[in-house]
Design a protein around this nucleic acid. Sequence first.
DNA 1: AGGCCTTCAGGAAATTCGTG
DNA 2: CACGAATTTCCTGAAGGCCT
Length: 213
Amino acid sequence: MAEILTHAQIWAALDALGERYGLSASGLARKAGLDPTTFNRSKRQSADGHLRWPSTESIAKVLQATGAGLDEFMALVAAKGARPTRSSRPLIGLAQAGVGGFFDDAGFATGAGWEEIDVLADADEHSYALEISGDSMAPLYRDGDIVIVSPAAPVRRGDRVVVKTTSGEILAKELRRQTARTVELKSFNPAYPDRVLQKEEVSWIARILWASQ
DNA sequence: AGGCCTTCAGGAAATTCGTG
DNA sequence: CACGAATTTCCTGAAGGCCT
């Protein structure tokens, strides 16, 4: 690969990121707290043909707002022009997920009762969709949002994760850190408490890959 | 290391598009 | 038809390069 970052790749990656969330260029900018015109076509090239680039600050804000990591963004850059594949994933409401019978011991989707939903995301085959209910994850995820989750994805500190406890509780939070004995979780919504769980209280951790719709 | 000066991304205003 | 969302056009603040 001769060029690492081309103008077309960067903008295509930004578009692809927006598409994953069902957002237009202006919608993505607004979600990131930027002026809605920031990513418009007309802002990508000036009349004299000069190429315009998004600032690193804007990209940082978009990654912050979407929860995508730099590695995921760079994967989109490398996959310039590739349309995300539409695939059908099992879907369940966050509220129902804790009831039991929907997951195996490792957190993989199993059993009956799952709906199906089409998502614009080439997530792995083990991924499934959760419909957010309530405001406990605001402002990042709102009631009715769909998040794509994978129990097969490796989790690192700072990742957004869904955790099932042995008592049947389902938590969606940010992974603060994992120690030998504990798992520390930070709430998205500051109105809700952070949690520190003992390792043996955790039945599985799945990483939130994308939000959609 | 400091000041000037050019460049340019992003904001403001204006306009068009889309949808009930 | 009205309202909001999306987009274009124009403008400005400030970042950053260059030359002492």
